[in-house]
Write a protein that binds this DNA or RNA. Structure first.
Lengths: 145, 145
DNA sequence: TTGCTCCTCACGTCACGTGAGGTGGC
DNA sequence: TTGCTCCTCACGTCACGTGAGGTGGC
């Protein structure tokens, strides 16, 4: 049972040492064994779990989602509906974020065009100074009293 | 010179009370006047600045960028190259974020498809368990020793 | 007197990153 | 002995949000 140090685990997974310790602290990664001097020692299962976590984080899954996905992965015979649900929700939140950013991108593009002008004619400053009141245009709240 | 309270300023701008106090604390918004009882009182210039900030935040500008943009807006006769530069950098970071999210979206879409299966055949769990080693595939670091 | 607004801290968020100050291993 | 790795805290990040505990205004 070849055990490896945290530095070696970092090299094998690409996960920073401090991040590995953090995952252990929050209970995402199982507790490491310890050498006589107190060094953390990791086995093959730690390596598998950490690789799983790293791939999940790269896909943008939250720590809590990865907790669930790790638990699912431990029971291959169970149905995987929960994994589909988690990934589906995650996909939808990404799609929404994309469309929000596309709106910002389009708004910014419409402002950038004319270098070498003065602030008084600048379309960026103008967009921030004038135009469009707050989103929550609730007349009951915004009316003068 | 009609002065308004923080609650009224919130209603007029859509910015939360705690957020307005926070902006004052970090020096983004000028210090408010105070009533005899210690209530903050705001004038027309505060309202204009806060509206400017709110629109800038809605466009995704950072607090530090808004500091610069507010300073620029105060000098209409100056050239606005800095505003173009700030907005251009911001636009590029948004475009990059969009393409990163599109990659995630595509990767997730390729995994979601087959409900009602078992974990053993789940493409989501499979993607996290097997396939693709870390990005930093540096042979000098990852080779066995 | 009621209850609405305002006040000042202080701590929490999310997932780590950084730095201080110290020790073990070869 | 050197210097590399490891250890444990504690605090910082970004832009706020929330809650405690209290006071002013009508």
């Amino acid at each position: 049972m070849s055990l490896i140090t945290i530095g070696r685990l970092k090299d094998l997974t690409g996960v920073q040492v401090e991040t590995i310790r953090y995952y252990e602290k929050i209970g995402l990664l199982p507790t490491a064994h310890r050498s006589a001097a107190g060094y953390r020692l990791y086995g093959p299962q730690h390596l598998r779990s950490l690789s799983f976590i790293r791939k999940g984080r790269a896909l943008g899954f939250s720590i809590d989602s990865l907790r669930d996905l790790l638990a699912l992965a431990a029971h291959p015979e169970n149905p995987c509906d929960n994994a589909d649900l988690l990934a589906g929700n995650h996909l939808r939140s990404i799609e929404q974020k994309i469309s929000e950013l596309e709106s910002l991108r389009d708004a910014l593009r419409s402002m950038i065009c004319c270098p070498g002008k003065r602030v008084a004619e600048c379309r960026i400053i103008d967009a921030l100074t004038h135009r469009t009141s707050p989103e929550n245009n609730d007349p009951a709240k915004n009316e003068e009293n």
